[in-house]
Amino acid sequence: MTTKKADPATALIHHPYHPPQGFEAPQPGVFKASTVIFPNVAALRARNWKSKSGYTYGLHGTPTTFTLEERIATLEGGLQTLLVPSGLASIALVDMALLKAGDELLIPDNAYGPNKELARNELAGWGITHRFYDAMDPASLAAAITPATKLVWLEAAGSVTMEFPDLRALVRIARERGILVALDNTWGAGIAFDAFDLGEGLAVDISAHALTKYPSGGGDVLMGAVTTRDEALHLKLKFAHMRMGWGVGANDAEAVLRALPSLPLRYAAQDAAGRRLAQWWAAQPQVAQLLHPALPGSPGHEHWASHCRAAAGLFSVVFDERIAAERIDAFVDALRLFKLGYSWAGPVSLAVPYALGGMRERPAWKGALVRFSLGLENVDDLIADSEQALKASGLA
């Protein structure tokens, strides 16, 4: 008696084989799904995606994304994490989940530019007002708070100009007025300081983190995270996250999971290289100001020393204002190992020139600025590259 061969169209989809349980390896498995299969109707109706007790739909989580969320929460010192498609999306999620028409948010003047542009445009169009305050002057924050203020953003260190604020003083001011505090913690990466334990019983409410940077480490992933310690606040963010339909790709989650074990080593290596190159730049006669929070003389260095145990491999050089911007551009173009590109914390060192006048309401410096991001190259080679570019552009 012969058994009829099953039609391949059906057999390949409904094949009965399931691999045995118990497989374990250094890296978590990668699960890709939009549809999640339920064993029966009772399970479909009973599962709860909000608590990670079960799977309902790919957008609400898979074993891969749940694992990454839990590891980022541990890295940050939080209890819950949500993943979003980019670092900027992590900022947008916080604003959109917590603010409504008539509310006001306060943003440091030295914050990440797109954070400010989101407030100036979309949020303003929705009736949400904003003000910029001087992060280096706690009195500036205190004076900006009004009855409408519902959220205060912090950033440490400041974008591009690298000022390190007195986080404890700023959090204390917001706490005394019952205002939520969100921190852009991309620079700190969960390594430099503890956002949820700043000392003196102080902590932020929310940590937003561009996983694009240090957690990814490869310059090839876009992803963000929002981490909290309060369950009610987390659920408020989670419901907004669900309603906006934000998710991340399984392969991107896999890439970050693979990179996380080396994060402390990479952060330490780029910290050491960044300080050495910054010290070399500090001795150059063309430099008016070296902006690296871990080095004495940089704005907020005393706050960095009070709060931190490490620093990102990132610093900026303000050139003498008598040097024309065109010559600074020529210097950047002459760099060979440093590539011209945005972002940071990847394996390739980057350099970007900035015009401070258009970035700040109160620019503290007049000269042209170049931000350097250290990759994983030999630091002696990076020093030599800087030196040859100075000569090639006529600045040496």
Rank of each mutant, 00 (worst) to 15 (best):
G201P: 11
V152T: 10
D205P: 02
A157K: 01
A174Q: 08
A174K: 06
G190Q: 02
D197Y: 09
L154T: 04
V181H: 07
I191M: 14
A169D: 06
V181M: 11
D197E: 15
R175W: 04
G199V: 04
I191T: 12
P165S: 10
D205I: 10
D205N: 15
D184P: 00
T186A: 00
L167A: 05
A157M: 14
E176D: 15
L198K: 08
L198V: 08
N185L: 12
R168H: 01
A156E: 13
W153R: 06
L180A: 14
R175A: 12
L151F: 08
G188I: 02
L167P: 01
W187Q: 09
A156N: 12
I206A: 01
A208M: 08
L183R: 00
G158P: 07
T161W: 06
T186P: 00
A195D: 10
L202V: 04
E200Q: 15
A156M: 13
I206D: 03
M162I: 10
M162N: 15
V181L: 11
A203I: 04
A210D: 07
F193L: 14
S159R: 02
I206H: 05
D197V: 09
S159K: 06
R175D: 12
L170C: 02
R175Y: 01
V160H: 10
V204P: 09
L167F: 01
M162F: 05
G178I: 11
D166W: 03
L202P: 10
R172L: 12
F193V: 03
W153S: 01
V160F: 08
E155S: 03
S207A: 15
R177Q: 15
F164K: 02
G190H: 04
D184L: 05
A169N: 09
M162E: 13
L154W: 02
N185V: 08
W187E: 11
L170W: 03
V171K: 01
L198N: 07
